[in-house]
């Protein structure tokens, strides 16, 4: 599997769709769809995410490979498939600003890794808190690009606390990369350095939250 992960990574990063699909199909001949997701797709996307942290992979490669994997996984593991992860009820949103790419990438990564989650699009603090409460959300992923939006995560946390809602918040986006302490300052429970971090974090919380 190690060699296949390496080849799959090269195919995804170079946008070789045919090559990536062939490797995916090869794996499917030997494993169940959920095993292919867990043993091929997730570790490959993790490596690509790590490459972005290190500056060797660009955002465009992450976006295109995440979108492609999302499509591959969707075909073999539709949203209604019982093999989809038994996960805490989750949602993702862009808070307050108008930069949507980060959210789109994380959404694709989560879905390509077998998770289902609500996509709230762009919301204000009030809209987001009301919607999360109404949907019974347990894990909320918040993406921002701008510093004022990052600082507004604090208002989301305070609203949840005031309403006694036990909702974990994962944040991600440029301001958190440039200030390593910012996620704690705004009251988030975790921060993703890249899109695949979100998958790892939710997975690490799953047992405790069932």
């Amino acid at each position: 599997m190690e060699a296949r992960i390496g080849k799959f990574q090269v195919a995804l990063e170079s946008l070789d769709k045919l090559g990536a699909e062939a490797l995916f199909r090869e794996a499917l001949a030997e494993l169940s769809p959920i095993q292919v997701v867990e043993n091929l797709v997730v570790p490959t996307l993790e490596r690509i995410g790590q490459g972005w942290n290190e500056g060797t992979v660009a955002l465009s490669q992450i976006y295109m490979s995440g979108r492609f994997c999302e499509d591959l996984v969707e075909r073999v593991l539709p949203p209604s498939d019982p093999d989809r992860k038994h996960q805490p009820r989750s949602a993702i949103a862009v808070l307050n600003d108008y930069h949507m790419l980060g959210k789109r990438i994380v959404y694709s990564m989560m879905r390509a890794s077998g998770f289902e989650l609500f996509d709230y699009g762009r919301m204000s603090v009030t809209e987001l808190c009301e919607r999360a409460r109404a949907d019974g959300i347990r894990v909320l992923l918040i993406s921002v690009l701008m510093l004022p939006s990052a600082l507004k995560v604090r208002e989301v946390r305070e609203t949840f606390d005031a309403q006694g809602l036990d909702i974990k918040i994962i944040v991600g986006g440029a301001p958190f990369l440039f200030d390593a302490d910012l996620w704690r300052e705004v009251g988030a429970d975790a921060m993703g350095h890249n899109a695949s971090d979100a998958v790892d974090i939710v997975q690490s919380w799953m047992g405790a939250m069932q």
Partner: peptide, 11 residues
């Protein structure tokens, strides 16, 4: 045109 659609256009 938005970042995602622009990346798709480039590629």
């Amino acid at each position: 045109m938005g970042f995602d659609r622009y990346l798709e256009l480039i590629y």
